[in-house]
Design a protein around this nucleic acid. Structure first.
Lengths: 191, 191
DNA sequence: CGAGCGATGTCAGTCACTGTCATCAAACGG
DNA sequence: CCGTTTGATGACAGTGACTGACATCGCTCG
């Protein structure tokens, strides 16, 4: 089973927790990789064996999200339109994030304070869009519609997610997604 | 007049041309800033006085694009819906890019080959989206609709632009944008 | 118990990027 | 016409992200 360290267990988990803690405490820029590794009881070199760079340690969960999205599109009923399938995928992803709301908020506050991290977040979202489009094509959707539905779906997700993490109350992410999807139809409808 | 070097003129232009040339010749990663500066007849330190980092030298034109987009939204007739205004803005931006098709293709091939550059491109597009949304609010559009129309507009632009630069023929960018906008309405229409 | 293997440690090196100070060319005032 | 000022550039040292090469350690299997 890959990913399980053989000395102190869960090296990756320790690195991720140490990194998030330090990024929250002192900010991303003022945290060195050596400090993260030290808090995790490892060396700098080992950090870079687990993560391609200093940013990537914050984005380990994105592959999980991708699987959830793709899976939901695949499971959508055959009668569903492309946007219906995308909507179902966004709901599934929302459920995952809703379970870790606190973690999502902490992580968002770190990313929101640093441009480099925003860049990484954007390319992860673009990757999710590509995966979504692929899942739609798997359902027989044509290339153009698949690309559009996926991009638009991710756009909706971005807006809903931002409103969710920045809200004062405790409304669910799912609800923001529903509202954004409704708003989308209003905005794209012919005048 | 700022930006005009007093020794050899147009230092920024020389740096941008040298950078694009080298990125095309040897790839982004295998090009050092010292090499760019040398080809431009300047020093590495001067490069970083003009551009925040090695990537930014490829994105000098994005501020122009932003002005074109915002201006077009502001000029759209009062009767125009938010998406109409966004569509007009995309057409205006398309006209600018159509004039420099060769440059756009070369630049795209460089960005397409490197992940870091793709990240920078994505955050520039996100910045354009924010500017678009601001211009829409200036027209009295509510926050939610402005954000959605802007994000969706940029999504359409991304897809149309990619199809344009990667096409074999010489169809105009404006046409791809029109097709994508039509596809968008089809995809978001209720079943 | 010894060989193999995967994860970690050590160390040297490159390069992006920054702070600081010196220098130079052109514009400006007297 | 010359001295001063101003803004861009050069020179140089330094930090930290990231990499390659090699040694070492702990576990597993035969």
């Amino acid at each position: 089973m890959p990913g399980m360290g053989r000395w102190q267990p869960d090296a990756r988990g320790r690195l991720e927790r140490a990194a998030l803690e330090l990024y929250v405490e002192r900010g991303f820029e003022r945290t060195s990789v050596a400090e993260i590794a030290e808090r995790a009881g490892l060396t700098e070199r080992t950090f870079f064996r687990h993560y391609a760079d200093k940013r990537e340690v914050l984005f380990a969960g994105s592959s999980v999200l991708q699987e959830v999205l793709v899976d939901a599109v695949a499971r959508a009923p055959e009668s569903a339109t492309p946007m219906d399938a995308v909507a179902a995928a966004l709901e599934a992803a929302a459920a995952v994030l809703q379970e870790r709301q606190e973690h999502a908020r902490r992580r968002h506050s770190v990313i929101d304070a640093n441009t480099e991290l925003q860049e990484r977040e954007l390319i992860k979202l673009a990757s999710l869009s590509t995966a979504l489009a692929g899942a739609l094509r798997q359902r027989g959707v044509d290339d153009a519609s698949a690309g559009l539905a996926a991009e638009v779906g991710i756009a909706v997700f971005k807006i809903a997610f931002r409103r969710w993490v920045e809200q004062a109350g405790d409304k669910e992410l799912s609800q923001f997604i529903g509202e954004s999807l409704t708003g989308l139809k209003a905005v794209t409808a012919d005048a």
